[in-house]
Design a binder for these strands. Structure first.
Length: 384
RNA sequence: GGAAAGGUGGCCGAGUGGUUAAUGGCAGCAGACUGUAAAUCUGCCCUCUCUGAGUUCGUAGGUUCGAAUCCUGCCCUUUCCA
């Protein structure tokens, strides 16, 4: 159904990635005509923030464009294990089936995709219907070490050194088992998921039940990792000290929902979006550590690949255009564009981009769904 | 199973019978200053029908005129031993 050739499909699948593990395997899949089943798992943590709704979903849209079957694992049991929503299965199920699913659909719609083509899998239901999932889980557990599992625990947004219960340790092997059991050959995640995906690829050859293969040939699932959208906060120290590790800095910038003011959601009111962007750290002429510019790169240039024009009053120099991100960066460094110019542009761009989602959630019954979820999140917060 | 230490407001962390709604720091909010943010300064920062009242220091009781501070049970966390 796709009219693209394999090279084009490869390019669109791999564009704007932070990393791909198993590039050759992906080429083989495309060339051999193997059915390409994708999956991405979402914990039912509450509201998916802009990083998920935009960066992650844009990649999903790319995959759909490339003719890949996309699957969403609504990871309810993983959510339970990670203690989100108080580990209350009833609440998790309610949010899973309502608001959460709806947000994902709205995201893909907003990006120009077709929500009807998304396939949702409820974790708990799937496991109940596929008992051999647990055999695969055991095979994975048998073929990896406790130390590796402990290291991959950071996928759960935790840092090392925290005490773990055994259930928490079951999370990573379950995640790997999801992939094999569901016959997935492209797994998508943020770059923070790389450790468990590496474990998954390493143990792949030991899996007997649900062994990954095509036409009798062993085929390792490919992992594709999208970059993380940085938080808009100021760095811990500013100006940055000489020779600090920018790579580490970027990882630390990962958007955190624990910062109430820092997160943007696609169903936010325009005023909130504007306010949040305006509060973002953005030093004049600074191009090394500049989350606002980073957002423009990832959200605007990487997605659209088009020239942009920033509209501004004559007194500040009038309208100005940029043919690509490098152009913007250069002119920003030269002081030809002011932070406010960029912020205004970004805020307007997001407000406009999110309009379909915002309008969707302004209508009944979605409005009530959203309100109910916010109520749940509020009550969960209080209990903790 | 045994021993020790400890649980204080979103987080960190003082406070060990009485001007303690509870020092301080961080985060957050508002304002000043900058064409944004950051930095700096100022105010707010448990709740309310708010120049007063109510409820707080894991939890349930107790002692006392009066406790976050003393005693007892329970819950939980951490560390050491087994």
């Amino acid at each position: 159904m796709t009219t693209l050739n394999n090279e084009q499909r490869f390019n669109i699948i791999t564009r704007n990635l932070e990393e791909i593990i198993g590039e050759d395997d992906l080429r083989y899949m495309l060339d051999s005509g193997a059915p390409i089943n994708h999956y991405i798992g979402f914990e039912i943590s509450g509201k998916p923030h802009i990083g998920q709704a935009l960066i992650v979903m844009q990649k999903v849209k790319d995959l759909m464009d490339a003719g890949v079957n996309v699957n969403f694992l609504l990871a309810d049991l993983h959510t339970y294990l990670n203690g989100k929503l108080n580990g209350d299965m009833k609440l998790i199920a309610e949010v899973r089936d309502g608001y959460f699913t709806e947000i994902i659909k709205a995201s893909i719609m907003m990006l120009g995709g077709e929500p009807e083509k998304l396939n949702f899998i409820k974790g708990g239901e799937y496991y109940a219907a596929h008992p051999d999932y647990w055999t695969t889980f055991l095979e994975i557990s048998k073929n990896t070490t406790l130390a590796r599992i402990e290291r991959s625990i950071s996928i759960m947004g935790r840092t090392d050194g925290e005490s773990q219960d055994f259930g928490t340790l079951c999370y990573p092997p379950m995640q790997a088992a999801d992939i094999f059991a569901m016959k997935i050959n492209i797994v998508q995640g943020g770059i923070d998921q790389r450790k468990i995906h590496v474990v998954m690829r390493d143990v792949a050859k030991y899996i007997k039940t649900n062994a990954p293969e095509f036409n009798g040939k062993f085929l390792k699932p490919v992992a594709i990792h999208t970059p993380l959208l940085p938080a808009l906060d100021a760095p811990a120290v500013w100006p940055l000290p000489e020779g600090c590790d920018m790579k580490q800095m970027q990882i630390d910038m990962k958007m955190s929902k624990s910062k109430p003011g820092g997160a943007i959601y696609i169903d936010d009111e325009p005023e909130k979006i504007k306010k949040t962007i305006m509060k973002g750290f953005c030093a004049e002429k600074e191009i090394e550590y500049n989350p606002i510019l980073e957002w423009v790169k990832m959200i605007v240039f990487d997605r659209d690949g088009k020239e942009i024009t920033i509209v501004r009053p004559e007194q500040y120099g009038g309208n100005i255009s940029f043919k690509d991100y490098e152009d913007l960066k250069k002119k920003f460094a030269d002081g030809l564009v002011h932070p406010i110019d960029v912020k205004n542009f970004l805020a307007d761009y997001l407000i406009n981009l999110f309009a379909p989602a915002r309008e969707h959630f302004a209508k009944s019954p979605y409005r009530e769904m959203k309100a109910r979820t916010e109520e749940i999140l509020e009550s969960v917060k209080k209990k903790r």
